[in-house]
């Protein structure tokens, strides 16, 4: 196998999905509408200047992938990990009320807008944009190629109402719905926790959600699409990790690295029992690596690997 790759931030290349042919007749998870090509600058002129008595403060601020750190410190790395192009920040103020901070992140593609949204899906689902969550003091949603955060300094009923109204206006201004990652269709459906799916490219994001290695053994990069999903079946739980690579050789190296460092004791079917009694499994289907992480039972691990393989091969 080759040495683990360091993750190199950079522009993602457009992927030619390895399993494109399988996606005809895609499941409802994939929105097929064409994303409207736009940018933060184009969106900026369509953003409301006022909402429920809150007025936009003097000047918007726009940050790029380098200057974002000056705005949100180390948290900027999350957005860089999803290929952030720009971030527009606008503050709305109203006398006697808390400030409202609108941050619009242009993620370059709708898939990455979806991806960064999946990083934090705590909260109550509400009907804004293509998917949204509201927690006390914070609304987040995605629409088209934009990930949007609207944040309150202090909570109040009036401000919460204004935040939600502002969210709807921003979502409307953001353009047509964008596509979700096509590889979502490869997830086995039975027992899938649809509210707990992460789409990512970067090892730091994978490790945030599920720590695996201190090195990039899986060769994640801006060119790889990874999906981490949770399953519940018959009282048992498991996590499934799918990684699509642009090259077969990279996929093979990732498989070899995983087997060497994580599952050296795997049987011929790629299954191994972990020290905590749970089961892990790994398989490669062309350029798609499928990994079951800590399944409660052997059969669940085996079934998930098999079903993911069937999805990948179009059976």
């Amino acid at each position: 196998m080759t040495a683990p790759q360091a993750y190199s931030p950079g522009r993602r290349h457009t992927l030619i999905p390895c399993l494109l042919g399988l996606l005809v007749g895609a499941l409802p998870m994939t929105t097929t509408a064409t994303a409207q090509s736009t940018s933060v600058a184009e969106l900026q002129v369509r953003l409301p200047k006022e909402i429920s008595g809150w007025r936009a403060a003097k000047e918007d601020r726009i940050f790029d992938e380098r200057t974002i750190f000056s705005y949100i410190d180390g948290a900027g790395e999350l957005y860089r990990a999803y290929n952030m192009q720009n971030c527009l920040s606008r503050r709305y103020v109203k006398k006697g009320e808390t400030d409202i901070t609108l941050d619009v992140f242009d993620m370059g593609t709708s898939e990455d807008a979806f991806g960064v949204f999946t990083h934090d899906t705590d909260g109550d689902r509400i009907d804004i944009g293509q998917d949204a969550r509201y927690r006390p003091g914070w609304l987040s949603f995605w629409q088209n190629r934009f990930y949007v955060s609207i944040y309150l300094e202090e909570e109040s009923a009036a401000a919460e109402k204004a935040v939600k109204a502002l969210g709807k206006l921003v979502a409307s201004a953001a353009g047509e719905p964008g596509s979700r990652p096509q590889h979502l269709n490869l997830l086995p459906r039975a027992g899938l926790d649809a509210g707990n799916i992460r789409y990512l490219h970067h090892p730091i994001v994978l490790n945030y959600h599920y720590y695996l290695f201190d090195e990039n053994i899986l060769h994640l990069s801006p060119q790889t699409d990874a999906i981490l999903a949770s399953y519940h079946r018959s009282g048992e739980q498991a996590r499934l990790l799918l990684i699509s690579y642009p090259k077969t050789l990279t996929a093979r190296n990732a498989l070899a690295g995983f087997r060497e460092h994580y599952l050296p004791d795997a049987d011929s079917g790629g299954l191994a029992r972990l020290e905590n009694g749970k089961w892990s499994a790994v398989a490669l289907h062309d350029r798609l690596l499928t990994i079951v992480l800590e399944a409660d039972g052997r059969l669940l691990a085996k079934n998930l690997i098999r079903e993911a393989g069937q999805q990948a091969s179009g059976e």
Binding site: F105, E154, E155
Partner: peptide
């Protein structure tokens, strides 16, 4: 912490 700013007075 919540959101890009990882802060809430709550």
């Amino acid at each position: 912490g919540i959101g890009p700013h990882h802060y809430s007075s709550r």
